[in-house]
């Protein structure tokens, strides 16, 4: 990917589940590399579906979807999986972690799945790198704990650490703060911004909580760009 190419570029995206109603109809969307974008919209406006398309998990759309300069429709299924594993960090709203793995194992899992992502650790061992990210997010004391013993706020920080480790270029966060209280929300976002900045990553942050939108570089209303359902 060249320096100037956008992190995300959508052109004439149309998507529906099977033969169901059209969920997405986005004529155009562009997110610059390194940008922190706040994407909002009410429930059912197609936020998570859009993220699924961007992550290459949902196929069967028409139009052009370029992520990090790559037309993901041209990638095979396994190439898409590998691409997602090595270039994307994903944070869910809730239940982000594999319940049977320790904090450390959860954080390192994407790097263990993707050799390319592991290769971006710059010679630092996986454990050391994980420790570094965890320290920045204030969860380095929890590394050996079972994830089921953590508070929701701690779990979300573990998820953030996992999405950041191995310097993926694009972080997609699907309402990661909705289960946190106000203080934790602010703190979590600060840490997330700091880490994205340090890694030079683009952040696509999805939420319906508009009180957070002023913290971002750009705010996008999905209903405004999505013609489906209007």
């Amino acid at each position: 990917m060249s320096e100037t190419s956008p992190a995300i570029r959508l052109t004439d995206l149309h998507f529906s589940y099977g033969k169901g109603p059209k969920i997405l109809d986005v004529p155009s969307l562009e997110v610059k590399a390194g940008e922190k974008v706040f994407l909002f919209g009410p429930s059912g406006s197609g936020k998570t579906t859009l993220l699924g398309v961007l992550a290459g998990v949902l196929g069967g759309y028409s139009g052009r979807v370029e992520v990090l300069g790559r037309d993901i429709a041209k990638l095979s299924g396994s190439q898409r999986d590998a691409f997602r594993g090595s270039h994307l960090g994903y944070i869910f709203q809730l239940f982000n972690l594999i319940p049977y793995l320790s904090v450390m194992e959860n954080i390192t899992l994407p790097c263990r799945l993707s050799a390319e992502r592991r290769g971006r650790l710059n010679g630092v061992s996986l454990e050391q790198a994980a420790h570094g990210v965890a320290k920045r997010l204030g969860i380095d004391e929890l590394l050996t704990k079972r994830v089921t013993n953590l508070s929701v706020g701690q779990q979300q920080r573990v998820a953030a650490a996992r999405s950041l480790l191995g310097a993926p270029e694009l972080i997609i966060a699907d309402e990661p703060t909705s289960s946190l209280d106000y203080d934790h929300r602010e703190r979590f976002l600060e840490l997330l911004f700091e880490s994205c900045k340090a890694a030079g990553a683009t952040l696509l942050f999805v939420s319906h909580d508009r009180s957070l939108m002023h913290l971002f570089d750009r705010q996008l209303s999905l209903p405004a760009i999505n013609k489906a359902g209007t």
């Binding site: 299924g77 999986d81 590998a82 594993g85 869910f92 972690l97 319940p99 799945l113």
Partner: peptide, 16 residues
């Protein structure tokens, strides 16, 4: 199902 979605999201393919 949630676990599988997480695995998919972090790059585990159908084969995995």
């Amino acid at each position: 199902r949630r676990e599988m979605a997480i695995l998919r999201a972090i790059g585990a393919g159908p084969v995995k």
